[in-house]
Amino acid sequence: MPTPWPYPFWIAHRGAGKQAPENTLAAFRLGAQHGWRMFECDVKLSADGVPFLLHDNTLERTTHGHGVAGERPWSELAQLDAGSWHSRAYAGEPIPTLENLARWCLMNRHHLDIEIKPTPGAEERTGQVVAALAARLWLNAEAPPLLTSFRPESLLGAMTAAPQLPRGLLLDILWDGWLNHARQLQCVAIVCNHALWDTALVSQVKALGMKCLSYTVNDEWAAERLIALGTDGIVSDRVDLFAPC
């Protein structure tokens, strides 16, 4: 577990939330222009094993491609337009690889929360490949990336491939057994839908030595509630609203 906790409190969701096309380098640059120093991204594998940034299983929403992204080779994915869906200003923006983003983060001393977002059926392998690459890219960095996932299998793959990298379990509900999984996976953080946090849950997680992070917080009242609860990090789309410290 990193000691002390090396990450900023504020984390920009998919680069710059909704102000630029999510999970593109343009989005991360825009978030940085607003003063944010830590970013969240979604990473999955191409058919030939290249870790790249995309949230959905399919290509239609954020590119002009079609079908399951993980069934396409990187040579095909690299040609897609991932910006026009957002606005004309970003037409032609490509899908980045994790390595593209890592080099940008390292050059600018930014922190990264890598959400492992596997194509169904590739959960453990995606965790293994992403973690192994992250370990190599951040080998001499001051702070490693935080590897998070909703899928325990992906976190298991990450732990197997690079046990030294910190891991966090993402939760949209408090499903049966989540805490045991977090312990077994040696997680350093629990990343919850922000509405799940209350005094009791914060105390329970912190008593186990884990940090309490929240997604996706876009309203001031919600951020104020989480700060009052003593949580440790907020993921937000609103790079234009909050002033990260």
Rank of each mutant, 00 (worst) to 15 (best):
A69E: 00
V202H: 04
S84Q: 13
C245I: 13
G230D: 06
L54N: 02
W85A: 09
L174G: 04
W74M: 14
A228I: 08
M107S: 15
W178I: 06
E153F: 02
N108Q: 13
A16K: 01
E124L: 15
S154I: 00
R109M: 08
N100S: 13
T3N: 12
P120R: 15
I11M: 09
R183L: 13
R136V: 15
L174A: 06
A243V: 14
W85C: 07
E71T: 12
S203K: 14
G168K: 00
H194A: 08
H34F: 13
T97A: 12
H194C: 06
T58H: 12
D81F: 04
V217S: 02
W36T: 01
D56L: 08
G17A: 10
D48N: 14
E123I: 11
E60R: 07
A47I: 10
A162H: 00
T58W: 09
G127Y: 01
E71F: 08
D172L: 06
I190V: 14
E71D: 15
L174W: 02
P73L: 09
D219K: 12
N218C: 11
A243I: 12
D176F: 03
L185Q: 05
P120Y: 12
L147A: 01
N193T: 10
E220P: 02
R125T: 09
A141L: 05
G92Q: 12
V68Q: 15
A207M: 11
N100E: 15
S236P: 03
K18F: 11
P120Q: 14
T63A: 06
A135C: 15
D113I: 08
V205Y: 01
